[in-house]
Amino acid sequence: MCTWIIEKAEMYGSGKGADGWFRMNQANVYYDHPYNAPLDHALIIDFVADPEKPGNRVAVEISAESARRLVESIEIALQTGVDAHAVDLTPGGTGHPAMPSSAH
């Protein structure tokens, strides 16, 4: 399978790429042949600042099983943090900053 169909998630945060830290605003998620990982198919995530420009990108290529573990770990870590710091995840809350226009 070679797919050009991807899931896109808008995000706010930073990533560290080949040129150092950058403000990223989108994650492209797909399941396809990896470029580097020795797998037939992998769950691939590209964290990018500008989807139209190559370069600053944080890329991961992981097995399907790894991806499911990662999802579980994210959920657990997020919930632990929310509980410990009383983060408000509702829109406009402390854990949900509005996307500043400078991030786009």
Partner: peptide, 9 residues
Amino acid sequence: DDVAAVTRA
């Protein structure tokens, strides 16, 4: 690989 990611997106 970076250019492929842009093309795919």
